[in-house]
């Protein structure tokens, strides 16, 4: 009994860790999606963030500088994406696919040039744990909730903040209006282009930081293609979480749990087909999209460019 409880606790601790990059990118995606932007390029943005984060941490010998670099670089990727899809009105989906291909090329190339091909990756500073006094001593949930990597707390904090922004402030109202009825929002004096630019840049910064958590939090080095579909899982989490920050938190924890178990199964060298666990987020998202479980309400102007009538 003791053992099983221990195992569950360890899995849940790992779950918060594996859920964090999904949650960060997912929250970023909410900002974009709510403004009517479907950014499939989030996978590539995370990969670029993962590389920028580890390289930044390595150069400055400080993990938080790495996170900062990842955020800035993610924001730049977002700005380029925004320029292409908002100003030039290029197709959002195809542009996203291009960013993913570009990201694989860029990060692999830079990694080989900056860190060399055959050498093992250099150790870089990684994110430390913060143990909250007293709280972390609560049995079971203490170690789970109050003895985590510092980035985990930051990601969790973003959930109520984002909820507050979307449902209690005029900024949130504007973003939602732009995503649902861009024309009406424009008539009401909201600058549709400006809102879409800023949500894309901010959302991509979060995706970049989410990627950096993979290379500086879960691991402490960059490996090629290390995001491995987590950007798409974040997209799935946003849809399954019904574009709501709390929903996305729940979905991230659910999907992260599968990830945590899968890592454990692979580490044990067990024959349990972990592949089915990896499929769960995608299957759930499809059933959610089909309206088979719950009902999803995507922003109405998703993936449509806004063309202002003169």
């Amino acid at each position: 009994m003791e053992n099983i409880l221990n195992l569950i606790q360890n899995l849940l601790i790992a779950d918060f860790r594996t859920a964090t990059p999904i949650l960060l990118a997912g929250i970023g995606l909410i900002y974009m999606y709510r403004a009517g932007i479907v950014n499939i390029g989030v996978e590539g943005t995370m990969l670029i963030g993962a590389f920028a984060g580890s390289y930044g941490a390595y150069i400055f010998n400080n993990v938080w500088m790495g996170i900062l670099v990842a955020g800035i670089v993610g924001g730049i990727v977002g700005a380029i994406f925004a320029f292409l899809i908002i100003t030039i009105k290029a197709d959002q989906i195809v542009t996203g696919v291009a960013i993913n291909i570009l990201a694989i090329g860029l990060t692999t190339t830079l990694n080989r040039i900056l860190f060399g091909v055959n050498t093992s990756p250099p150790e870089i500073p990684s994110i430390g744990k913060i143990s909250l006094p007293y709280l972390s001593e609560i049995p079971f949930i203490g170690r789970l909730l109050f003895n985590q990597l510092s980035m985990v707390y930051l990601a969790l904090l973003l959930v109520p903040i984002t909820y507050y922004i979307f449902y209690k402030t005029t900024i949130g109202l504007k973003i939602r209006a732009v995503g649902d009825h861009p024309k009406a929002a424009d008539t009401a004096g909201v600058n549709v282009f400006k809102v879409r630019y800023w949500t894309t840049i901010f959302g991509s910064m979060l995706a970049g930081i989410g990627g950096a958590f993979l290379s500086t939090g879960i691991l402490s080095f960059f490996t090629e293609d290390m995001v491995a579909g987590r950007g798409f899982i974040a997209l799935a989490a946003v849809i399954f979480g019904n574009w709501n920050p709390w929903g996305v938190l729940g979905a991230s924890l659910l999907f992260g749990f599968g990830d945590a178990i899968q890592i454990r199964i692979q580490a044990m060298g067990s024959n349990i087909p972990y592949q089915f666990l990896i499929m769960v987020p995608y299957l759930l998202t499809i059933t959610a999209l089909a309206g088979l479980v719950g009902k999803v309400n995507p922003p109405k102007a998703s993936a449509e460019p806004y063309i202002k009538e003169e």
Partner: peptide, 17 residues
């Protein structure tokens, strides 16, 4: 690195679109 090809591929898509 052969990954430069992916960079060129990505750029081609972006410019065409």
């Amino acid at each position: 690195p052969v990954s430069v090809i992916s960079i060129i591929t990505g750029l081609v898509i972006i410019f065409v679109i």
